[in-house]
């Protein structure tokens, strides 16, 4: 880290001069010094290497302090225009940001800062972003800001080529990862105007394989329904998919609805719900839907019994 001289800067006081009891705060000396300097430089609008260094030090202790990100961005934009090689300069800034990102996985200013840098960059590259995205998702596979940023990148670069394989990898690692399932839907919605019969069949097979592994997992069921609706009318669902779902509910549909203890366990309440939704759309299968919802209310998902009763009322 380079040493800069700030001795000519008169730090602005950061304690408020209000006498109010609510406002009297004890700061540590170091924090006081840094913030006092920053306030002074911001008020002078100094856009210099030492100001940049100072923002790095403050981001180190208080990364959620949004003002400092604003200030840093102004400095970078200015210094970039003065530097001989803009690309090199911005890449160095991105390298620094990678480091900060790794140390602050929960911070979200980082990601909008990153977007702003890419918009500024004369030749931004998705490829440069992939390693940090991967590291962050390896660390927390459901990190909301990282996933949102990845989607932003896909749209910004109009590049979806890595996405399906990436989502598959993540689902292989953790079949419950709803973020990865959602990302998969994002891929189909945005990257595909037309889907071939082969692709459709492959994707359905992928989903069914995953459900077969863990039948009581809400994400692939929701995804399956969404995927069906993306490409088919609710009545025209693939009969293969409907048959597949019925393999997880045993023979409960043919049993009398008695007390919960008399009903057998089933492999997946989501399968029952999925089928009820499908059956409810067709008058010929409406009775099945009513029965399935009743079973959910009584035995297989009683915590939501008011919802299931509402569904039954809608059908009658």
């Amino acid at each position: 880290m380079e040493e800069y001289d700030y001795s000519d800067v008169k730090p602005l006081p950061i304690e408020t001069d209000l006498q109010d009891e609510l406002c009297r705060i004890m700061y540590t000396e170091d924090y006081k010094r840094l913030m006092g300097l920053a306030r002074a430089l911001i008020s002078l609008n100094e856009l210099s290497p030492r100001a940049l260094q100072l923002t790095a030090e403050i981001i180190d202790v208080a990364p959620a302090f949004y003002t400092i990100w604003n200030y840093r961005f102004n400095i970078v934009r200015h210094m970039m225009s003065e530097s001989e090689d803009t690309v090199l300069y911005l890449n160095k800034e991105l390298d620094w940001l990678d480091e900060v990102t790794l140390n602050n996985p929960k911070n979200y200013q980082i990601w909008s800062y990153r977007q702003s840098l890419l918009k500024l960059h004369p030749s931004p590259s998705f490829k440069r972003e992939l390693p940090i995205l991967k590291l962050m998702i390896d660390d927390d596979s459901k990190n909301y800001h990282v996933w949102s940023y990845r989607k932003w990148c896909c749209l910004f670069f109009s590049d979806f080529q890595h996405e399906l394989a990436y989502a598959s990898d993540l689902i292989e690692t953790d079949i419950y990862n709803n973020s990865a399932w959602t990302h998969r839907m994002f891929y189909w919605v945005n990257a595909k105007d037309v889907i071939s019969k082969v692709e459709l069949a492959d994707e359905l097979q992928f989903i069914m394989d995953k459900i077969q592994l863990v039948p009581q997992n809400i994400s692939p069921w929701t995804y399956l329904r969404g995927f069906q609706e993306l490409f088919h009318d609710r009545l025209q669902w693939d009969s293969k998919v409907v048959d597949f779902a019925t393999t997880f509910i045993g023979d409960v549909l043919s049993l009398p609805i008695g007390s919960p203890e008399d009903l057998p366990e089933i492999e997946s309440s989501y399968a029952l719900e999925f089928l009820a939704y499908h059956w409810g759309a067709d008058p010929c299968t409406r009775d099945n839907a009513v029965k399935a919802y009743s079973l959910l209310a009584i035995k297989y998902d009683p915590i939501r019994k008011n919802l299931w009763h509402h569904k039954i009322n809608n059908l009658n």
Binding site: Y144, W147, S148, K151, F186
Partner: peptide, 16 residues
């Protein structure tokens, strides 16, 4: 608004 009935932080983001 998303396909699953939820809402995301911005268009396309996961429901939360």
């Amino acid at each position: 608004y998303n396909f699953d009935g939820g809402f995301g932080l911005c268009p396309n983001a996961e429901s939360h």
